[in-house]
Nucleic acid binder design. Structure first.
Length: 790
RNA sequence: GGCCUCGUGCUGGAAUUGGUAGACAGUCUGGACUUAAAAUCCAGUGGGAUUUAUUCCCGUGGCGGUUCGAGUCCGCCCGAGGCUACCA
């Protein structure tokens, strides 16, 4: 396919009802897809379902149903809802991630990841809800309590599967620079998340001990100012010094103290500064992260805010190693080194280079690049997800299954009681005899994080019926990457980073020729709506509010209500509008129009009754206009020009997804055509209709048929010849001394000297320049003339 | 605290990327049609002044700068929003 355009909107979670956010997302994508199709591209525009996930399990418990039944039923309902939106989707490419035919290949990919060293198992701390007997995601823990049970969440160490996203940390960061069609904002967010920093790792010896402490720092230049060492509570060395009880006690102290407060305990060991030989006290401190670097820092209080705070509190020495004259400490900017022997006189960067070389020569440290990005824990103690294809033998060893043992199918006959993962209690499914060894074994009962499902669906779409492999490389290489990916900004980091990681990993495993999944990214804004609360602070439906005697009152109770800000639509704040209702009351065309009216697609759109009504008025106007008869009128050259110019603008605006301007073009066009009574039963009329078609497919289809007895299947976007648009006579703005005075009618491509004499005799200009002398003529050809008089 | 984005009429927003600020829409006001309402159509709608005009002055958060010319570029300040949060 030579002329392909792969246009994709983020697929929805099948919650059962589409909401306005979906509508906006898919309408924006559809306008673009239809436009590109009219432009002659082979458009790929699939849709599917992000169908695994927690809500299905919760719904199953609440409504005594089965996650699968609930999900499949929702998919059916939502597909019907989508069908009312006039979307041009390739439904033959449809997929649902909960379908065995999808997730079996995800299991295959996992096996490949494992073989390549990109998937591994290790112990890690997780949020454990003791009542539900399950692991919670970070965002499901609110104020230290489980969001569903309210039970205090514990930190529990579990053996979990990880994807080695850190292997690609460097590339994920670097190749962001090549994504020129991504919003700068998203790229910055990802860069910060990856958090690359350059520095070095320094080895500190411990007095009278074989133990060593490794410390990563970006400021090795301040090593002469080091006055203490601090370790995180989970640092290995602690286990050699204290028994568990004491560590637990310190942990409790740390947990109980204020987040911002820095506390620590001195340890009975002494570290040696590898450069100066100084003896440094070693602390365990609450502000040292154990997940970054080596979970240890050296403190240089004079030049670090945090170290300064800690040193002040515990009366540790503060040694200045950077000349900052009168500046108050801590001084964290660049300066000239002092009190640092061979570093003295150097600026920060030079000092860093010099000291790293010193460490490397003395074998007491190494240059190192560190990342905030940590490996991706993908195990979820959940039923409704893709099973991880691993089995465990009685001796505790495990085996990742071979591809010929797939799929590991999720059993249907489970009991959803809300207590833990039902797979654990499903003995028949869980207990197996290993077909390769004949040994008894247990299946892995964890399933994948659902972000895994959405990390490669855009590839599977292209070959969704392939029964043998995740995808055929030839097809995928031809059709990837996605040319335009449209979705919410809330996925700026996780989903988009995971998908980029998957793409790179799949490239290195299969024979894929692309490194980035999404060439252009467009993040659309949310839909907001006014909120109202009554005297008891209960939320009130906007439709239940009216103005009476200049006061806002709730219609149903006649109570006064107060108006809050316009916020993202949410059920809890009662400020949602139901797409079904809107489409029923205003029609699909007006609904589509409002999704792009009022604000640019990348910004939030405020839902207003006046707004949707205005869109409805527009569609009515269009229908009315095309049913009128201005048959015998001839179209003048000026009229032609005006209309073509407008169509030309529409073209540009859809291409840039400046869809609010596209709507403005439509209004301008109809304001004009109604006033001028333009005859549209001709080729010009056809062209106009085609330019409206991406937004109003069903409406235009109907008009097209009524007017021309022709269907819209075979139409092409009109070529607009520039000669229709370029003006030969222009109104040139004239400035005197930089201030606008008047316009001057002239031929395009005039010569300033030819028109000058005439220009200054025009009354308005003449009046301004009386008794003044010309200093300078500034001519920006065909744009503006600025005359400087003195 | 750090990073980022954004401040334009009553409101949402335009402004060819440094060249006539306020397109288009909403709101409101007045008028036409109607027994009436809705719908529709017409006119007006940044502020101020005045001789009411093809008029003048001011005006894009504030102060300064660059430029023939700044909503747009630069510096500082004020305000709003987003992300991140002791990342050594």
């Amino acid at each position: 396919m030579k002329n392909k355009k792969y246009i994709l909107e983020m697929f929805p979670y099948p919650s059962g009802n589409i909401h306005m956010g979906h509508v906006r997302n898919y309408v924006i994508g559809d306008i673009y897809a239809r436009y590109q199709k009219l432009k002659g591209f082979d458009v790929i525009h699939p849709m599917g379902w992000d169908a695994f996930g927690l809500p299905a399990e919760n719904a199953a418990i609440e409504y005594k149903t089965h996650p699968q039944d609930w999900t499949l039923n929702n998919i059916k309902k939502m597909k019907e809802q989508l069908s009312t939106l006039d979307l041009s989707l390739d439904w033959e490419k449809e997929l649902a991630t909960c379908d065995k035919d999808y997730y079996r290949f995800q299991q295959e990919i996992f096996i490949d990841f494992y073989k390549k060293g990109l998937a591994y198992k290790k112990n890690s701390l997780v949020n454990w809800d003791p009542e539900d007997q399950t692991v919670l995601a970070n965002e499901q823990v609110i104020d230290g309590k489980g969001w569903r049970t309210g039970a205090v969440v514990e930190q529990k160490e579990l053996s979990q599967w990880f994807f080695k996203i850190s292997h690609y940390a460097e590339e994920l960061g670097n190749s962001l620079d090549e994504l020129s069609e991504w919003p700068e904002k998203v790229k910055i967010m990802q860069k910060n998340w990856i958090g690359r920093s350059e520095g070095c790792e320094i080895v500190f010896n411990i007095e009278d001990s074989e133990d060593k402490i490794n410390i990563f720092t970006t400021r090795p230049d301040t090593i002469f100012g080091a006055t203490f060492i601090a370790l995180s509570i989970n640092h290995e060395i602690l286990k050699a010094i204290f028994d568990d009880k004491i560590i637990k006690k310190i942990k409790i102290d740390f947990d109980n103290c204020d987040d911002k407060e820095k506390i620590g305990y001195e340890l009975p060991i002494i570290a040696i500064n590898p450069v100066t030989g100084d003896k440094l006290p070693v602390y365990v401190a609450n502000f040292v992260l154990d997940t970054y670097g080596q979970g240890a820092i050296f403190g240089c209080p004079a030049h670090d805010d945090r170290d300064f705070e800690f040193a002040t509190k515990y009366k540790l020495p503060i040694r200045k190693v950077m000349d900052c004259s009168d500046e108050e400490l801590p001084f964290t900017e660049d300066g000239v080194m002092i009190n640092s022997k061979f570093l003295d006189g150097m600026k920060k960067d030079e000092a860093i280079e010099t000291i790293i070389k010193y460490f490397e020569n003395n074998k007491s440290g190494n240059r190192k690049t560190n990342y905030k990005l940590r490996d991706w824990g993908v195990s979820r103690q959940r039923y409704w997800g893709c099973p991880i294809p691993v089995i465990y033998y009685e001796d505790g060893s495990y085996r990742v299954l071979d591809k010929d043992e797939l799929p590991v199918e999720l059993p249907y006959d489970i009991e959803m009681d809300g207590k833990g993962n039902p797979l654990i209690k499903h003995d028949k499914w869980r207990n197996i005899i290993c077909s390769k060894t004949g040994k008894r074994a247990l299946r892995e009962t964890d399933t994948f994080d659902t972000f895994v499902d959405s990390s490669w669906y855009f590839i599977r779409f292209l070959d969704n019926k392939n029964p043998d492999r995740p995808f055929n490389e030839e097809i995928v290489n031809e059709l990837m990457p996605v040319d335009k990916y449209i979705g919410g900004i809330e996925h700026a980091i996780l989903h988009l980073l995971y998908a980029r990681f998957f793409t790179k990993a799949l490239r290195d495993i299969y024979d894929l020729k692309f490194s980035e999944p999404f060439k252009e990214l467009f993040t659309q804004g949310m839909i907001t709506h006014k909120t109202y609360q009554n005297n008891e602070n209960a939320w009130v439906l906007p439709s239940d509010v009216a103005i009476k005697n200049k006061k806002l009152i709730q219609i149903s109770t006649n109570q006064e209500v107060k108006e809050g800000p316009s916020e993202k639509m949410s059920k809890s704040k009662k400020n949602v509008v139901d797409p079904d209702e809107i489409i029923k009351n205003f029609g699909v065309n007006a609904t589509r129009a409002f999704m792009i009216s009022d604000s640019p697609p990348e910004r939030d759109l405020e839902w207003t009754d006046a707004g949707i009504q205005s869109s409805k008025n527009l569609t009515n106007r269009i229908e009315r206009f095309f049913s009128k008869d201005f048959d015998n009128k001839k179209i003048s050259e000026d009229q032609n020009k005006f209309i073509y110019k407008n169509l030309y603008e529409m073209d540009k605006n859809i291409l840039n997804l400046s869809l609010n301007k596209y709507i403005a073009n439509i209004f301008t066009l109809f304001n004009y055509m109604e006033k001028e009574q333009i005859n549209i039963k001709n080729d010009l009329g056809k062209k106009i209709l085609i330019c409206l078609y991406p937004l109003f497919p069903s409406l235009i289809n109907k008009i097209f048929k009524d007017l021309f007895d022709q269907i819209t299947d075979d139409i092409k976007w009109p070529l607009i010849d520039e000669k229709f648009i370029i003006e030969k006579i222009i109104d040139l703005p004239i400035q005197i001394n930089g201030k606008f005075v008047t316009t001057y009618k002239t031929q395009i491509d005039y010569k300033i000297n030819d028109i000058y004499d005439n220009l200054i005799t025009t009354p308005k200009i003449n009046e301004k320049i009386k008794d003044k002398k010309l200093v300078k003529k500034i001519n920006v050809q065909n744009k503006i003339i600025n005359l400087i008089f003195n």
